[in-house]
Amino acid sequence: MPASTHPSLSLGPVLYLWDGPKWRDFYFRIADEAPVEHVTIGEAVCSKRLHFIEPHVAEVIERLEGAGKKVSLASLALVTLERESQLVRGLVRDSVHPIEANDLSALGLLAGKPHSVGPLINVYNGATARLLASRGATSICLPPELPMASVRDIVRDAPDIAFEIFGFGRVPLAISARCAHARSKGLVKDNCQFICGEDSDGLIVDTLDRQPFLALNGVQTMSHTCQSLLQELGELTAAGIGRIRLSPQDCDMVMVARIYDDVATGRCSSAEGIERLALAYPGVPLSNGFHYGQTGASWIAAPAGSPHGGERWQMS
C-alpha cells in the first residue's frame, strides 16, 4: 500500500463537447496553472465528436508535457461500430502515451502493455483488479458508485496496482446507443448536428415537479449534482488511494484543482474547501452519497474527525 502523505491530483478527460479552441485553451491553462500531476485527454463519450479536438491534440500534449504533467489518452466508452473498433485499434497500436481503457475492447487489445483503467470499467472487487493488473493495468480509477467499504477492500486486495477515485465532477451514470441529448432537441443521433455542443456543462433534466435531477451529455447521462469527496480525502488517503480524479466541468477548473490541493496538503480545512468549491462551481449542488453507500445524489456532511458519521442532507 503506498504510504504517501497526501494524494496527487489527476484531471480526467473533458466529457462534454467543447469546440476545438475552447478545448485547447482549457488545457493550456491547466498546463500553466493547475496543480495536477496527471492529465487524461481524449474523447471518451462519442466517436462523432473526435474531429473537434483532433487538430489540437498534439499542441495540447506538448504544452502539458512541457509543464511536467503526465499525459494519458482516453479510449471510447462505447464501441459498437466498425469505425469505432478501428479507432480503438489504431489508438492502441500507435499511441506513444499510456492509454486509459474505457471499454472491454481496449482492455482486450491492451493486454501485456502498461495501461490505466478508466472509471467506466466495472471494477467492483479485488479479484477483478488483480486480473486487470496481471494483464498490464498499472492504475485503476474505480467506478464512482463504489462505497468506501468496497474501495478499502479492493485497495487491500490488490496491492500491486495504483488506485484513483472520482473526486470531483458530475458523475457519468449511464451511456446509451441512443442520443437523448439530440432527441431532446428534435434530432436523432445519426443527424445530430453536434447539438450537444450547445450545452458545454450538460443539459439539465428536471423531474415533472421541477426538481433538477440529471444532466444530458450526448449519449451519456450524468448526475445533476457534482460529486465531491473533498471531506473524504483523508480517509481515502489512509486507505491507500494515491490519486484523486477531477472531472472537468465548464467552470474554473484551475480553482477547483487548487482547492483540492489545498485540502489534500492541509493548507485549508475541508469545510473551507467546500465553501470555496461552491464559489468555483456555483449553482450546482454537491453530492457524496455513493461514498457512503447511500443515494448517490445525497450530500452527507461529515463532522471533523468522524469520517463515517454525519447528517444526511438532500441537496436539490
Binding site: 462505447l78 473498433s85 480503438v88 471499454d103 475492447s105 481496449a106
Partner: peptide, 11 residues
C-alpha cells in the same frame, strides 16, 4: 458485461 464489439468478445 457489456461486450458490444468483436475485440471485447475475443477478450
Amino acid at each position: 458485461a457489456s461486450a458490444s464489439n468483436a475485440d471485447a468478445v475475443k477478450f
